[in-house]
């Protein structure tokens, strides 16, 4: 199967979190521990049972205009994933679609103890799942898209606005640049993220952001 890209257009996001719920349904994940007791999770973050989360930021630009920024955080699926390099058990594999997947049968944090994948990931994505005793993260739905039904990832299928789309690498990268050009007149700071020549190579997840990286609390250059 050819390489795929998940494109997330933040300018279309309404923060409804349909993607978050669909991810939990597809991956059969439970509700967050503690959340059901009525404690609001402020700020939301990735956990071992939550592979994606929509974060919201309030941004005030130089002229005082306030805007809400939504960022669907998840694994970037790097071309040269550091997590896979540092895993002593070689439990992290790169699938033909570009998905970087922690293989459950190999991952064993009790053996490597220090959870090097979590420490090494510059985006701090892999998280420990208490119930399974394993490291977990987004799989780019490799087990959903490979069944020949032509479906996209669970989050892309669930997104009501079309902010999340999924497709072949070349098509989606071209779409990303076209969309970026459309947005630039209205959002002069719009950009693609992560940089395509970053330390981990081309990622299989691309964001179109409407503001600078610092507005999303993302580290510059990564």
């Amino acid at each position: 199967m050819a390489r795929k890209v998940l494109l997330i257009d933040s300018s279309l996001c309404i923060s409804c979190r349909a993607c978050q719920v669909a991810c939990k349904v597809w991956n059969d994940l439970p509700a967050e521990p503690g959340m059901q007791e009525g404690r609001c999770d402020l700020p939301p973050r990735l956990t071992g049972t939550r592979y994606t989360v929509v974060k919201d930021y309030e941004h005030q630009n130089g002229s005082g205009k306030i805007s809400l920024l939504f960022f669907k955080d998840q694994c970037r699926h790097c071309q040269y994933p550091i997590c896979a390099k540092v895993c002593p058990l070689k439990a992290i594999e790169i699938k033909p679609t570009g998905a970087v997947v922690i293989m459950g049968n190999k991952c064993n944090p009790s053996r490597c103890r220090t959870r090097p994948c979590e420490r090494a990931c510059i985006y701090q994505v892999p998280k420990f799942n208490q119930e399974l005793g394993k490291m977990r993260k987004c799989t780019l739905c490799f087990n959903r898209i490979s069944d020949g039904s032509g479906r996209a990832t669970a989050c892309a299928d669930a997104c009501p606005t079309g902010a999340i789309s999924f497709g072949d690498y070349s098509v989606m990268v071209q779409k990303a640049y076209e969309r970026l050009n459309d947005l630039l007149p209205k959002y002069p700071n719009a950009r693609l993220y992560p940089g395509q020549n970053g330390p981990c190579g081309n990622t299989s997840v691309l964001w179109i952001l409407t503001e600078s990286l610092s507005a999303y609390s993302l580290l510059i250059g990564r």
Partner: peptide, 9 residues
């Protein structure tokens, strides 16, 4: 799960 995916066909 051991096979690396928690989702099912």
């Amino acid at each position: 799960i051991l096979q690396g995916g928690e989702a099912y066909a």
